[in-house]
Amino acid sequence: MDWMKRSRAKKQQRRNNPPSEASPAVSLHGAACAYEGKQAVQPLDWIVQPGEFWVILGPNGSGKSSLLGLISGAERASAGGVNIQGRPLAEYGRRELARELAVLPQEGLPPLGITVKDALEMGRFPYRDRFGREPDGAAAQALLTRIAERLALTELLSRRLDELSGGQRQRAALGQVMAQQPNVLLLDEPTAYLDIYYQLDIMELVQQWRAEEGLTVIAVLHDLNLAAQYAQRLLLLREGARVAEGRPEEVLTPEVVGALYEVMPPIRVGHEEIGVPQMLFRAQSAKNGKRPGSE
């Protein structure tokens, strides 16, 4: 436990002491992403403060995934720069970055023949030495036990991934990401293949984790209503450029959303219990089913 306390203390220290105190969790300074001449993300200035929950919205091909790629280091910025915790992304070593920032992939974990326990342990990779040893084995074990309890995976620990349902595998993937103990979590359409139960399940678990540990979350979602429920702030992208930014109730207006996806402006209703805006769409698209961007 000592080591965990120490690492926690170190993180705390980093948060409290300058220069990190003022430094945002993630910041982009004119960062752009281009492949083969095509500009996937236009130069973008964007600041994400520690503990914030951001959702990036936009139609297919609007650069959402490329933007996540820029932040996770999967894509190199063709212009400008990305800072994580106030430090340029390029200065991070791979393992160091994996301790700071984690990505929950869309498809969760593949249906492999490994056990859930093994899958969770893989999340410890960035902390382990070359021979797979933890700096403090007991603390790591305690952490993994706690994660398993929290995600209700304790019963499934010795089950193989290929015996689990898609939703359970996504939970295991979240557990693996938690084992990385990141400060920043990127979610790339984490609910794309899940039913409503598991969609809410995953989002709720992420929300709890954020509340308890001050985690910063940046998510790409397709579901506007899910986004409105969980996001503190939204970033709307179209053709690689920012269209709007702000709180869901400010940004999610029928006109903005209709223009963003090129559909008939949806009907906006307030969620009866939690008051966030929800969108009801009409089937017919604005321009006879043709989207100019998708020839």
């Binding site: 999967a74 301790r99 974990l109």
Partner: peptide, 23 residues
């Protein structure tokens, strides 16, 4: 053998292995 842990990560796909800090 020393790279066996890394080979385990490869099973998750190269992309995921990279996100977990593997070069």
């Amino acid at each position: 053998w020393a790279n066996a842990g890394a080979m385990n990560l490869f099973a998750l796909g190269e992309r995921r292995a990279g996100q977990l800090g593997l070069n």
